[in-house]
């Protein structure tokens, strides 16, 4: 393959547009690759799991499959908000594993090319930077693209739950 061909491919890659589902969390827009979204459903009550991290709301029956539900506000240490009619669960599929993300509302599907993509700047005291994949300027608004796999990483979740103080009453004797 000659160089011009390679350059073409690179250019194609740069112009390649990816679609993102955007949603809102406390007045900020976020985006996740739409290919990772399986479905969107309204908020329904979930079954809490004992002794799990606080941001795991519980598990939900999704047509016979049991799916853990993560509250993104709590995951990002944002202020808790009452669930209302706009509250939505985005069910994402990360290499076969399902997880539901609770967000304030879903907004739109947008196209963004890799070219528009820019690295998230280093900013101080930002714990959530590991979840951020990049930033996109869109309609004069800043869209934060999230790395879904880190957000719903089960091993990570397991680590966090083991950090919880063990219940003193666990050994009841």
């Amino acid at each position: 393959m000659d160089n011009t061909n390679l350059a073409d491919i690179k250019e194609d890659l740069d112009n390649l547009e990816q679609q993102y589902l955007t949603f809102r969390l406390s007045d900020q827009d976020y985006g996740i690759p739409i290919l990772e979204v399986q479905e969107i459903k309204g908020w329904t009550a979930v079954t809490p799991i004992p002794n799990s991290p606080h941001f795991i709301k519980g598990v939900l029956n999704l047509r016979g499959t049991i799916v853990p539900i993560i509250d993104l506000r709590l995951r990002f240490n944002l202020e808790r908000k009452e669930y209302d009619q706009f509250t939505v669960i985005i069910v994402v599929n990360i290499s076969g594993k399902l997880a539901g993300l609770v967000v304030d509302s879903v907004s739109d599907v947008v196209n963004a090319s890799n070219e528009q993509h820019c690295e998230a700047p280093e900013f101080e005291g930002q714990l959530n930077r590991q979840f951020i994949d990049g930033l996109v300027q869109f309609d004069e608004k800043l869209l934060i693209l999230l790395d879904i796999s880190k957000l719903a990483d089960v091993d990570d979740l397991a680590d966090m739950s083991s950090d919880l103080a063990p219940d003193a009453d666990l050994e009841d004797n």
Binding site: P50, N51, V59, G64, T65, I66, P68
Partner: peptide
């Protein structure tokens, strides 16, 4: 139904 398919093992459950 398995909990572990999409989540993880839960102590006592």
């Amino acid at each position: 139904k398995s909990l572990e398919t999409h989540y993880k093992r839960v102590e006592g459950v």
